[in-house]
Amino acid sequence: MEIQDESKWFKKRWLLILGVIFLAFNLRPAITAVGPLIATIQKSLGINNLEAGLLTTIPLIAFAVLSPLVAKFSRRWGNEKTLFLALLILTAGIFIRYSHQLGFLYAGTLIIGSGIAVMNVLLPSVIKSDFPKRIGLMTSIYTTAMCAMAGLASGVSVPLAEGAGLGWEKAMASWGFLAIIGIALWIPQLKANKTNSSNQAAAYPHPSIWKSRTAWHISLFFGFQSFVFYCLIAWLPAILLSKGMDESTAGWMLLFVQIIGLPSTFFAPIIASKLKKMGTSIVVIGLLNLLGFGGLILFYQAGLLVTSVAMIGLSTGGSISIAYMIISTKAKDHQQAAELSGMAQAAGYFLAAFGPVLLGFTFDQTNRWLEPILLILLVNTFMVLAGTHALRSQAKIN
């Protein structure tokens, strides 16, 4: 009987599920495709490291600045129309960035970050609104889709640019076709959107989310796990090189840490939603980080270093999907989910933007990776404390 019910549910919602998956597919490739091509872009345009670094920093700044504003757009136009507009903005940004002029490259990157910021915030709201009884499962599906496509984009950027002979401009622009597919799949949801925007605004009685202690715990958890992840992405190869790993293998470890985390990304919300004390999942994630980063301090053997990286991958993979699940689970309704998501992601990407810089500064002062890794472990402790407080059964949002 349960299987039949699941089958009926899927047949009824398959188009929306597919739309959500393709929204998730578009959350990261336009950003993660840039990193592997940075050296090529620098050589082609003759720009310095600071100018090149802005190509990866600008989207994070857009996330932090725009995320708190997205709920207002949603209350006015509804989730479906706002997400459709975000897909259009993302597509425009990708093709505007198809230029050999630095000004257009920056402008397109800013527009891309703006479109993704809206989708980042509203997907948990869609899950809360349309899948209230399957929050864990749907969060697993879309966060896994997001992370898988992010890893794929970073992995195929250089082969597309060099192996396929597209060059860096066309290689980055090619992700626009993924956005176009997302637009096509989201059009049916515009017809399904029956919520009147003025009624939405009138039916929003919640006090400011920024006054809620639980909302701050959720935001800090999102922020600290983002801090750990982006520090990892920025500095893992350098840490492994200092341990004697060769340059090629250290570079591959960056892709490995994202791939190995995919099972954790998928299963963590499902498992956490079935636990009597969901905070246990946060403690497990924190312990994996502790063991993984502890291994990066203690070990020099390649096999043990790879094992340490795998533990970190499982931890960071699970933490991002649980962060999104907490938002959908704790919010009272889809509008509060949008408000909470905007707050959490503003804090998250603000911290994420400063994390790699802080670690780099610490390394410059000490000339070794012990202190930067200890800093990550300190943040990991804060992450566990914030997450367990947010997931307490009595923790409510005002």
Rank of each mutant, 00 (worst) to 15 (best):
I116M: 05
M325C: 02
M149F: 14
L23Y: 04
A52P: 07
N48I: 10
I397P: 01
I181M: 05
L291C: 15
I38G: 13
A192T: 02
T40E: 11
A153L: 12
T265C: 13
F22H: 04
A86M: 14
A390S: 02
W235S: 07
K211N: 08
Q225H: 11
S7H: 14
L50P: 06
V121C: 06
L54N: 11
E6Q: 14
I111S: 10
N49G: 08
I38S: 14
T57V: 14
P124N: 03
L359G: 03
E6I: 06
F131Q: 02
L15V: 09
D333S: 02
G295R: 14
S321E: 10
G342E: 01
I31F: 06
G155N: 04
E6F: 09
I116Y: 06
I181E: 04
F222A: 02
E371W: 13
G251P: 10
F382E: 02
G292S: 05
L60E: 00
L377T: 05
R97E: 00
P356I: 01
F222V: 08
A346I: 12
S157I: 07
K396D: 05
E51M: 14
L105S: 01
T139Q: 02
I183K: 00
A117Y: 12
Q301A: 07
A338E: 07
I135Q: 14
T381V: 15
L178V: 06
L291Q: 15
W168F: 13
L314H: 13
Q335I: 05
S273T: 10
I218S: 09
G182E: 11
F222T: 02
G113Y: 12
K191S: 03
S281Q: 12
R76Y: 15
K191R: 14
G223F: 10
L236Q: 02
W186Y: 06
T82A: 00
G19F: 11
S308M: 01
L375S: 11
I181C: 00
F221R: 00
R134P: 01
H100T: 12
L374Q: 06
F104L: 04
N48A: 07
L288T: 07
G35P: 15
V228N: 10
K11R: 12
I327S: 12
I312R: 01
R13Y: 04
Y142F: 13
I326S: 03
K191N: 05
I181H: 00
L377W: 08
P205Q: 07
L152C: 09
M149A: 12
N48C: 03
G53A: 00
T144D: 09
M1P: 15
C231G: 09
I239R: 14
L88R: 13
I270H: 01
L351P: 09
P372L: 04
R213N: 15
F350A: 09
S212C: 04
L374G: 05
S129M: 09
L87C: 02
I233T: 08
N193W: 11
Q345G: 13
Y324P: 07
L15M: 14
I183L: 00
L314V: 01
P124V: 03
N367S: 14
K243S: 00
L83H: 06
I327K: 09
F227E: 12
W235R: 10
L305V: 00
I31M: 01
L102R: 12
L351I: 07
E162W: 08
A395F: 04
A71H: 15
I271D: 06
T139V: 05
I322Q: 11
A337T: 02
W369I: 10
F267Q: 06
L110Y: 13
A202G: 13
G279Y: 13
L137G: 15
T91L: 13
I183G: 01
K128T: 08
M383N: 12
